Amino acid sequence: MDKLLMEVLDAHGGMENWGKLTKITAHMSLGGPFWAARGWPGVYLKQTVTADPHREHITIAPFTAPDRMSVMKVVPERMAITTLDGQTVEERLNPRDSFPTPFVQESTRWDAIQVAYFTSAAVWNYLTAPFVFTHPGVEAREIAPWTENGQIWRRLAVTFPKTIANHNADQVFYYDDAFMQRRMDYSPDVTGKAPVAHYTHDHKAFDGFVFPTRRLIHLHDASGVADQGFTPITVDVASVTLDRG
């Protein structure tokens, strides 16, 4: 295992403790102009997210109506909208293949399943990082450091297999001297591979594990410099509860 990754895992709660978890429950809100541009303003104002820490299974409630939620399962990929008691309202297999192209930031509309898939895959990976980097088929290695605002951040280049639904396969994660994540770079396949610089702030410990509670998603230029004057997506986490077996 990469030495930097080992340090990061220990700083976030440790692999041994992570292995004992059975469920993650997070209360969060997602904002920014991105959602209105997809045709869904205010769709994620106050949600309860329930995730399996070891396999890509995540629910988000409410979703599109007070009595509905989204349910994502992977291998195979299945995205569903159900009632809160589990009755299927709508579902789609291989939802990733349904996204419209080309993608235009200001005008491309998504249906409810597409919005749910994009968010569910993203949030599951956010909540399980850095421990998801140890899953079968994931490759993580340290690359050259990055300097920003006088700080030097070490970086992990991570490649995800097709068995993990994510923004895209190749991503880069940045860590400070305390091994806390400060930024991640990716280029979502379903948004035309727009180059994203995703910053993480306000790290807090919940029951022995550390999670960023404020995320600001920007775009970056060809040299990696982020345009922090434009924030299409924000993610705010109010609380995280962890269940153990």
Score class of each variant (00 low, 15 high):
residue 159 T to H: 13
residue 188 P to N: 09
residue 190 V to F: 13
residue 209 F to D: 10
residue 54 H to W: 02
residue 97 D to C: 04
residue 51 A to I: 01
residue 135 H to G: 03
residue 110 W to I: 05
residue 233 I to L: 13
residue 48 T to H: 03
residue 128 T to F: 03
residue 198 H to I: 06
residue 211 F to P: 00
residue 97 D to Y: 06
residue 142 E to N: 08
residue 207 D to A: 14
residue 210 V to E: 09
residue 160 F to D: 00
residue 117 Y to T: 01
residue 228 Q to Y: 03
residue 213 T to M: 06
residue 199 Y to M: 10
residue 178 A to L: 13
residue 38 R to C: 14
residue 229 G to N: 15
residue 78 R to S: 13
residue 219 L to P: 05
residue 80 A to E: 09
residue 238 A to R: 07
residue 200 T to F: 14
residue 233 I to K: 06
residue 98 S to Q: 04
residue 196 V to D: 09
residue 179 F to P: 01
residue 65 A to C: 08
residue 84 L to V: 09
residue 87 Q to S: 14
residue 131 F to L: 12
residue 42 G to N: 06
residue 121 A to W: 02
residue 84 L to W: 02
residue 43 V to P: 02
residue 106 E to Q: 14
residue 45 L to F: 09
residue 228 Q to F: 04
residue 149 N to H: 12
residue 114 Q to P: 11
residue 68 R to T: 13
residue 199 Y to T: 07
residue 2 D to L: 08
residue 76 P to E: 12
residue 58 I to E: 00
residue 232 P to T: 03
residue 38 R to T: 05
residue 128 T to C: 11
residue 212 P to G: 12
residue 201 H to E: 14
residue 90 E to S: 14
residue 13 G to W: 02
residue 79 M to S: 05
residue 27 H to W: 02
residue 112 A to D: 13
residue 108 T to L: 08
residue 152 I to N: 09
residue 171 Q to V: 03
residue 148 E to T: 13
residue 240 V to S: 05
residue 62 P to R: 05
residue 212 P to R: 05
residue 115 V to N: 12
residue 185 D to A: 15
residue 51 A to M: 06
residue 124 W to K: 02
residue 165 A to H: 00
residue 127 L to Y: 00
residue 211 F to R: 00
residue 220 H to T: 08
residue 59 T to K: 03
residue 96 R to Y: 08
residue 213 T to Y: 09
residue 160 F to M: 13
residue 50 T to R: 07
residue 72 M to I: 01
residue 85 D to V: 12
residue 165 A to Y: 00
residue 54 H to A: 02
residue 224 G to F: 04
residue 23 K to R: 15
residue 176 D to Q: 10
residue 59 T to F: 01
residue 122 A to P: 00
residue 34 F to A: 14
residue 41 P to K: 08
residue 191 T to K: 03
residue 125 N to A: 10
residue 150 G to M: 05
residue 184 M to K: 04
residue 114 Q to E: 14
residue 191 T to G: 08
residue 49 V to A: 07
residue 232 P to M: 13
residue 156 L to P: 08
residue 20 K to R: 13
residue 214 R to T: 11
residue 196 V to E: 08
residue 204 K to M: 14
residue 206 F to Q: 05
residue 136 P to Q: 08
residue 229 G to R: 02
residue 4 L to Y: 07
residue 182 R to H: 06
residue 198 H to P: 05
residue 177 D to I: 11
residue 202 D to V: 01
residue 158 V to P: 07
residue 11 A to V: 11
residue 73 K to Y: 02
residue 92 R to Y: 04
residue 105 Q to E: 15
